Measured scan of single mutants.
Amino acid sequence: MATGGRRGAAAAPLLVAVAALLLGAAGHLYPGEVCPGMDIRNNLTRLHELENCSVIEGHLQILLMFKTRPEDFRDLSFPKLIMITDYLLLFRVYGLESLKDLFPNLTVIRGSRLFFNYALVIFEMVHLKELGLYNLMNITRGSVRIEKNNELCYLATIDWSRILDSVEDNYIVLNKDDNEECGDICPGTAKGKTNCPATVINGQFVERCWTHSHCQKVCPTICKSHGCTAEGLCCHSECLGNCSQPDDPTKCVACRNFYLDGRCVETCPPPYYHFQDWRCVNFSFCQDLHHKCKNSRRQGCHQYVIHNNKCIPECPSGYTMNSSNLLCTPCLGPCPKVCHLLEGEKTIDSVTSAQELRGCTVINGSLIINIRGGNNLAAELEANLGLIEEISGYLKIRRSYALVSLSFFRKLRLIRGETLEIGNYSFYALDNQNLRQLWDWSKHNLTITQGKLFFHYNPKLCLSEIHKMEEVSGTKGRQERNDIALKTNGDQASCENELLKFSYIRTSFDKI
């Protein structure tokens, strides 16, 4: 039985969820670079991206490699990797027998973001014989899940209580170790020597080791999670996991709180800001991140802002960003909400898709409305799209047979046209069989910064309504002859009103 693990408890099935942008060198404390989270699957090609990484700022997932063999891993080693800020997950990587050479110096898994409450997941690794993470000293947050690894031993010899604050939620089941077939031998045991430290858990006094050649490092209890030197002297209180010299914040392997210019500090002093819960960055760093993602459509890219001495992905609820200094300031009234469309555009074809934009005031991208039916549609669209004030790209209304009016965009005031449909149009209306009105132009103002209007096959939309939009939106004169079809717009509506004058002759039985 794995020490510190839980057996036999019912657990939810383990679901495996399925960018080499360097964020800056980590400095003297770390020998390499800070790398983003990685999802490495199918083959070993991307694994080489770990070569210079000291910190993975995010998670590391290595999974679904069915053609790899043990010899493929023999020359692979990433000794610079010290810390993973989120979680480490391995799933069905064939041929991998140990992690001792792959990650010989991995010391800390912070667990800032977890995989279903777990910071370390080893699942269905069919050839893994031992973990071998002999320098792993601290899992700051989260638990361990090690399950269905039929060859995995050296679990009962690990004292997880020396690595985690609590072992109650560890789930370590259905491994070879369960069948008591392992016969784990710690260093020196074969020669009758006791080389590794022994600890007591559940009444068992057991030597602690990761492999037959690597003991588990056990520091004096007084050192807590700070770690200790090879001689057993406690590291500085700002260290986490390990250090090369005692009581020196510049000799830590990793930091308990924050890293700044080669030393570990309790908090980031001005003019620095907390970033990702582990390091200090200056304003320029946060500003660069903001600008890199301002026009990016890459998933996970955030326009970072500053709030409460932190550089964070977005302002919290009730705050909006001051564009001059990136500071989050309290909103006066309802907060603006910028919604970034991942692929640059979004099609609204149902109430469900409209709900995804609920509360958005600025759309960074283009909207395509293609709704053919739905219950209580006008009210639903207004509830979900009615706060949109600005669209950076274009607005396209296409084959939306259920629409009679666009009044559900009740606050839309600006279409920038930074991206144009077919390279020309910022407003595009095609084949809307029941569209009769755009907006009530006596109450609604709309500016279209650039781009043209396109109207074709809107049989109940009168040309007068379209011409009014040209005047109000500032697009009059931009359109070419064929942009607004004269014969297919309003051709099934009563669009022309003329005053009919009647004269009559009164007659009676005795007068003409």
Rank of each mutant, 00 (worst) to 15 (best):
H28Y: 13
H28F: 13
P31I: 11
P31Y: 15
G32E: 10
G32V: 11
E33D: 15
V34G: 06
P36T: 10
G37P: 06
T45H: 11
L50A: 06
C53V: 02
C53T: 00
E57D: 15
H59Y: 07
H59C: 11
I62Y: 01
R69S: 05
P70F: 07
F73A: 12
S77K: 08
P79G: 05
K80G: 11
L81Y: 00
I84M: 02
D86F: 00
D86R: 02
Y87C: 00
L89M: 15
F91Y: 06
V93P: 00
G95F: 05
G95Q: 13
E97S: 05
S98M: 02
L99C: 04
K100V: 06
F103K: 00
L106S: 00
L106G: 00
T107D: 02
I109K: 00
I109G: 00
S112G: 06
Y118R: 02
A119K: 00
I122P: 04
I122S: 05
H127S: 15
E130K: 13
N135Y: 03
L136V: 08
I139V: 08
T140K: 14
G142M: 01
V144K: 01
I146S: 02
I146N: 01
N149I: 01
N150F: 04
C153E: 02
Y154R: 14
I158K: 04
R162E: 13
L164N: 06
L164H: 07
S166G: 07
V167C: 14
E168T: 10
D169H: 15
D169W: 04
D169Y: 06
Y171T: 12
N175H: 15
D178G: 15
D178M: 14
E181P: 04
D184R: 15
I185H: 06
G192Q: 15
A198G: 08
A198T: 11
A198N: 10
T199S: 07
V200F: 13
V200Y: 12
I201P: 15
N202S: 11
N202C: 06
G203R: 10
V206S: 15
E207R: 09
R208S: 08
C209D: 02
W210K: 10
H214W: 14
H214A: 14
P220C: 04
I222T: 10
K224L: 11
S225V: 06
C228R: 02
A230T: 06
E231K: 06
C235K: 00
H236V: 02
G241S: 09
S244M: 14
Q245M: 07
T250Y: 06
R256W: 03
F258Y: 15
C264G: 00
C264F: 01
C264I: 00
P271A: 12
Q276V: 10
Q276Y: 07
D277C: 02
R279A: 10
F285Y: 03
C286M: 00
L289V: 10
H291V: 14
S296L: 08
Q299V: 07
Q303F: 14
Y304Q: 03
Y304F: 14
Y304G: 04
C311T: 00
E314H: 02
C315Q: 04
C315K: 01
S317G: 07
S317P: 08
T320E: 08
M321S: 03
S323P: 13
S323H: 14
L326V: 05
L327D: 15
L332E: 15
P334R: 15
P334S: 13
